[in-house]
C-alpha cells in the first residue's frame, strides 16, 4: 500500500487532503510544526479509513533539519505533498521585515528545502510524486498580495523547474493553484461564494488531478481563465489598478 506524506498537516487543506487520500486506501504520514495537535487527526483517519497514520514533527523554517526528517521516515512516502504556508497582513509585512522574511521563508525557502530532498530521493528511485500547493496569487504581482504573491510566484517557478528536472526520472511534479478557499486563514474575509472552494473540494480536485498525473491545476478550474485575463492586462494599465 502506498504512503502519502502531508507537510503542513494541521492546516484545513492538509487535514482534508490527508482524509481524501486515506479514503482511497493510502497510508498517511502527517507532518507539522506542532505534532501534538495531530493525535485526534491520526485516530480519526485510522478509525474511519482503516489505514496506517503516523505523526512527525516538521518545522519548515529549520532548513537544516529537513534531511534528517526525511531520512527518518519509514517507510519513505510514495507521494510528498507540501501544503504549509503562511499569510500576514501585507501592510504589516511591508513595514516589518521579520514578517516579510517569515512569509518568504515558509512559503518558498522552506518548501524548496524539503522538496529538494524528496526530489533527490525520487529521482534516484526513478519513481514518486511531488505535489506543491502554490496559489493564484503567484500568477501576477500586485499590491494587495505583495509579499505573499511573490513568494508563491517563486514557488510556482520552482515547481515548474522541478517538473522539468525530474521528468526524465519518471517523477511526477504537480502544481496546485487554489483561488479563494474557506479556511481559518480566510475566515474573517468576505469571500465571493461562487469563486470560493472548501478544503474538501480542494482535496478532491488534488486527488483526481494526481490520479490523472496533471502538471498544473487551478482550484476551481475557472481560476485559470480569471488569471489568464489578469495576466494579459498590459502593465501600463495594470500598474494603475487596485487589485
Amino acid at each position: 500500500m502506498e504512503t502519502v506524506l502531508i507537510l503542513g498537516a494541521t492546516s484545513d487543506i492538509g487535514i482534508a487532503t490527508a482524509k481524501k487520500f486515506a479514503s482511497s486506501g493510502y497510508n498517511i504520514q502527517l507532518a507539522a510544526r506542532k505534532p501534538a495537535e495531530l493525535d485526534a487527526v491520526k485516530s480519526d483517519i485510522e478509525i474511519r479509513y482503516k489505514v496506517d497514520c503516523t505523526i512527525h514533527a516538521f518545522d519548515a523554517l529549520q532548513f537544516h533539519s529537513h534531511a534528517a526528517f526525511f531520512e527518518r521516515l519509514n517507510p519513505k512516502p510514495d507521494i510528498t505533498i507540501s501544503i504549509f504556508g503562511t499569510m500576514y497582513e501585507e501592510d504589516d509585512a511591508f513595514n516589518e521585515w521579520d514578517l516579510t522574511q517569515m512569509m518568504i521563508d515558509v512559503n518558498y525557502t522552506g518548501v524548496v528545502s524539503i522538496l529538494n530532498i524528496a526530489a533527490k530521493y525520487y529521482t534516484e528511485r526513478k519513481t514518486g510524486s511531488i505535489i506543491g500547493i502554490s496559489s493564484v496569487a503567484g500568477d501576477r504581482g500586485r499590491a494587495s498580495k505583495l509579499i505573499y504573491g511573490s513568494s508563491k510566484a517563486a514557488l510556482t517557478a520552482y515547481l515548474a523547474g522541478l517538473r522539468n528536472k525530474c521528468f526524465k526520472d519518471n517523477v511526477h511534479v504537480m502544481t496546485v493553484k487554489p483561488g479563494f478557499v474557506y479556511t481559518r486563514m480566510t475566515e474573517h474575509l468576505p469571500l465571493p461564494k461562487a469563486l470560493t472552494s472548501t478544503p474538501n473540494e480542494v482535496a478532491s480536485l488534488v486527488y483526481d488531478a494526481y490520479v490523472k498525473r496533471k502538471n498544473t491545476i487551478y482550484v476551481k478550474w475557472f481560476w485559470r481563465y480569471i488569471m489568464l485575463i489578469i495576466k494579459n492586462i498590459p502593465e501600463f494599465q495594470f500598474k494603475k489598478m487596485k487589485l
Binding site: 484545513d12 485526534a40 485516530s43 480519526d44 478509525i47
Partner: peptide, 19 residues
C-alpha cells in the same frame, strides 16, 4: 463543525468517543 474527529471506537464493547 471542524472539531469532528473520532478519538476511539471499541468494536468489541461498542464505546465510541469523538469530538
Amino acid at each position: 463543525l471542524k472539531f469532528d474527529k473520532i478519538l476511539s471506537f471499541n468494536i468489541a464493547d461498542g464505546v465510541f468517543e469523538c469530538q
